[in-house]
Design a protein around this nucleic acid. Structure first.
Lengths: 131, 131
DNA sequence: ACTGTATTTAAGCAAATACTTAAATATTAA
DNA sequence: TTAATATTTAAGTATTTGCTTAAATACAGT
């Protein structure tokens, strides 16, 4: 029980010497307002945060479409492993599929192309992106 | 044992009907050349792929510096939890520290500011970034 | 109908994550 | 020196991740 809790009940960790209390409260509210934006951003980055998936997104950005089989060859990993990564990307609506015979072609979801291109903006020889 | 393996020994998964074999080989080599770039990118995105860490990076981008204690208040999580996230960010050289008394201020590592600003380019009211 | 190919799904498992609580460290002030 | 504060570190744990292998599904050609 510390006396300052009487005037600042929302403070519960440390006695701040430097921080501006109002500003802190303001940041809390800002983060609350765009909570869903952050949630989506974190989801995209979590997916891009895996080496195999990052490369898949890169390759799909370069090539129009690729099948799990090709990706398996390029990335040198088993087809089921690739398929499971593709499923996560599709669940997050980052890629879409087109079926022709027994082949399933994966491509970048058009309305997510900007977000995905941004991921590779620091890659050398990367095509420029309209934001 | 399939006959085509004699002329294309590096192919080991599926019989491709559509893909250009040379192009596939080309992508393998390209990915090999920039393997370390992808590794670093994936590392950054994996770190940004956590909601708490993404917010920490955002807040540090807005404010010049913040201590674990303030972040704990803003994010409404325990101090050790925040501290462990900050450690990961520091291990990856995304943030740095400055000590004053018993307070440790965290701030964005200057040479990583561009990479980090890029993470939030789709956030509304985000300041523009020089790439 | 049978075989082969492309893909997904399921089950199992080792490793990584992200928290928790408790203890250790460092600094400041009484 | 003692007490309080800020922070980190350690240990424990539940959950998630990312692969593996095997099985299931779907389609095409013979």
């Amino acid at each position: 029980m510390v006396s300052r809790e009487k005037e600042l009940p929302q403070v519960n960790s440390c006695i701040r010497l430097f921080a501006d209390q109002e500003q802190i409260q303001g940041y809390k509210e800002t983060l609350d307002e765009i909570e869903d934006v952050f949630a989506r951003l974190a989801q995209v980055y979590a997916l891009a945060g895996n080496d195999a998936r990052l490369k898949i997104l890169y390759l799909l950005g370069q090539q129009n479409e690729l099948c799990p089989c090709d990706l398996s060859d390029i990335l040198q990993m088993t087809v089921p492993a690739v398929s499971q990564h593709l499923r996560k990307l599709r669940d997050a609506h980052l890629v879409r599929t087109r079926k022709t015979g027994q082949t399933i072609f994966y491509s970048i979801m058009p309305d997510q192309a900007n977000v995905i291109d941004q991921l590779f903006i620091h890659i050398p020889n990367q095509k420029s992106v309209a934001v």
